[in-house]
C-alpha cells in the first residue's frame, strides 16, 4: 500500500505553493512514497520517554536591548524587486 496518494501529493504541492503537472505528481508520488517508507524504520525505535530535540545547544531566550535603529532605505529594499511602482512592490491582483 502506498504511504501517499496522488491526491495527497497534489494537496501537499498546493500547501507548498508549487504548481505541478500530472506527470510530476505521478513521479513525486513514487519518490516520496519510497522516502517515507524508508523513514518509517524510525518506528522500530522506542521513543516513549524520549524528549524531542529541536536545537542542540542549551540556548534559552536570547534577548537584546530594544533600541530603535534606522531601517533599510527604500531604494535598497526595492533593488531586487521584480516589479515596482511608486516606491512599492507591484504584484498581480489579489482580489478578483
Amino acid at each position: 500500500m502506498s504511504r501517499i496518494s496522488i491526491e495527497e501529493v497534489k494537496h501537499v504541492a498546493h500547501l507548498a505553493r508549487l504548481a505541478i503537472t500530472e506527470e510530476e505528481a505521478v513521479n513525486f508520488q513514487k519518490q516520496l512514497d519510497a522516502i517515507i517508507t524508508f523513514s518509517e524504520q524510525l518506528n522500530e525505535l522506542d521513543t516513549e520517554n524520549v524528549e524531542p530535540t529541536s536545537h542542540v545547544l542549551d540556548i534559552k531566550n536570547v534577548l537584546r536591548e530594544d533600541v530603535s535603529k534606522e531601517g533599510l532605505p527604500q531604494e535598497l529594499v526595492l533593488k531586487n524587486a521584480p516589479d515596482q511602482q511608486d516606491g512599492q512592490i507591484k504584484v498581480p491582483p489579489i482580489i478578483e
Partner: peptide
Amino acid sequence: IMLGTFALSSGYYDAYYKKAQKARTL
C-alpha cells in the same frame, strides 16, 4: 519541499517530524 511540507502537515506531524526529533535525541 514536498517531503518537508508533508512531514509537517496536519495528521502527519507526530508520526514523522516529532518522531524524527526524538530519534535525534537518541
